[in-house]
Structures are given as C-alpha cells and as structure tokens.
Design a binder for these strands. Structure first.
Lengths: 139, 139
DNA sequence: CAGCATCCTTTGCGATACTG
DNA sequence: CAGTATCGCAAAGGATGCTG
C-alpha cells in the first residue's frame, strides 16, 4: 500500500484516471470528466475561487460533504495541480488550500458553464415539463 | 410502470434530477452536474455539434457505449430540451437526433472547457507526475 | 434499425470509529 | 484540527436477449 500499484478503495491513493490512448475529442472529454465530474470538485473549486480556505472552513461551507470525500476531492485537485495544500507545523494543525494559477484558469472556463446554466434554467425546466407531460398524457 | 411514479432502474424513465431547494451556487453546480456529469452526455453533445445523427451512427462513432446507455443519454438530453428526436415512420425505422438551439448554446460553453483542457493537458500531466514522485520517494 | 427488459458488476459515496 | 481506515449501501453502467 506504500506505492501506487496497489488499488485502495478509500485511502488517499489517487490512481491515474482514464489514461487515454488516442488523442481524440472523446479522449479530452473523458479527461475532463475524470477531473471534474464527481460530486464535489466543481464546488470546491468555486469556493476556493473566492479565496484560501482551511480544511474545516471548506467542510463548514459545504457541510453535506463527508470529511472523507472532502479529503479525497482535495487530494485529487492537488494532484492535478489545481490547488495547493499548505501545512503549517503548529498545534493544533493548520492546513490551507488555495487555487493555483492553473486552477484559476479552469475556474474561468467553469464559470462559463455556470453562467449558461443560470441563464437557461427556465428553458430547461420548461422542456422537462413539456417532455413529462407529453409522455404521461398520450405518448 | 406506466407512469413516472414508479422508480425503474433501466427503463426509459427520466426522474427529476436533484431538484434543489435553495438558489445557491452550490445548487446551480449540482444542477449542472446532474445534466452533464455522466459518462456520455458531453460526448454526445459534441458529436451532434457537427450535425444530425441517427441512433446507429452515434453508436458507431462512440462504440464503447452500450445501446442502453446511448438510449438513456439521448432521452435525458431530449428531456432537458438539448436535443430533438425525430422518428420517421418507415421500415426499417429511422430516428434522427440533433441539437436544439439550447443545446448549441450549451455546446459553446462546453467548448470553453474542452479548449482549456486541451491547452493545459501537459501542465496537468506534469503536476501529476510531480505529485506522484513526491509521495513515492519521500512523502 | 432502434429500441426495451433483466441481470449483474463496479464504482462512488456516506457513516462511523480512530489517530498524531 | 486535519486527517486515516473500514464497512456497507445505492446508483451507474455493462452484457445479453427479445421485439415492433
């Protein structure tokens, strides 16, 4: 368990996600998803976008997250070079998390999507209602 | 199983994803993830970005996808108003899928992320190598 | 061709208890 | 405070077989 060869389910062992062979769009999207398409990464990035946080601060701000998933998410982001982890050798321990330049660049791209979502929420809701109505009434 | 009340695991029954109560960023991100953060949605949207496709064409172009997941993904996107599904009453059957205007708008936002990913692949790969090296050599 | 239904495996995640 | 280790469940997704 000391090296990366052994697969561990829960320990802080961040395996190489979908190392994609060919250089297709499919690959890039898979890459993107591996990095962001989990339950918490985007949210953590967004929060860190407004400034450095300690572990517990993040935990409080999200609070539906378990410490396990917060740790896992942060390690994942750290590994990808999106956030920095700074440990202060004090008691009680203090660890700060912040976005890197790379992470801030990604945040910008993410904001584009968030903005789009915000702008088109109603249209999507309407589409859903229409779809559901259509298939429950007749077919 | 005829209406939407019964939860079915595999049938084409697209339940309301995370209907979020409060109107926070957290909510919007959850919404965004519910729509895009599965294994195939982004890829399908990208493909349809270059033109209408039939079911089988999509299946061929992705080909690691199962028909089940392709169907599920398309229904999901259709329900959200991102793609249209056009059935031609011919034998053998023919069904065309295409992006809606809404879907094309989303595609633009997605392209931003894909572009970012493409531009920073190397940095991320380097960050990973560094991280892994650091933690396997000393700590 | 374009699905639907069923079974089964895998993965993600939460809950909980423990530690430097 | 900031984690780590283990357990267990639920949801996602794959494989296969059947149908109009």
């Amino acid at each position: 368990m000391e090296d990366g060869t052994t697969k561990s389910a829960t320990h802080i062992d961040v395996p190489d996600p979908g190392s994609c062979v060919r250089d297709t769009t499919s690959c890039e999207i898979r890459d993107l998803l591996d990095r962001l398409a989990d339950k918490w990464s985007l949210l953590v990035i967004e929060l860190l976008g407004s400034g450095t946080r300690r572990f517990t601060e993040l935990h409080r701000e999200i609070d539906e997250i378990s410490q396990r998933m917060l740790t896992l998410t942060l390690r994942h982001l750290e590994r990808d070079g999106l956030v920095t982890r700074t440990v202060y050798p004090v008691v009680p321990p203090r660890v700060d998390y912040a976005l890197t330049d790379l992470g801030r660049g990604l945040l910008v791209a993410i904001e584009g999507l968030v903005t789009w979502t915000r702008a088109h929420r109603d249209e999507i809701a309407a589409a859903r209602s229409g779809y559901d109505a259509r298939r429950s009434s007749s077919g």
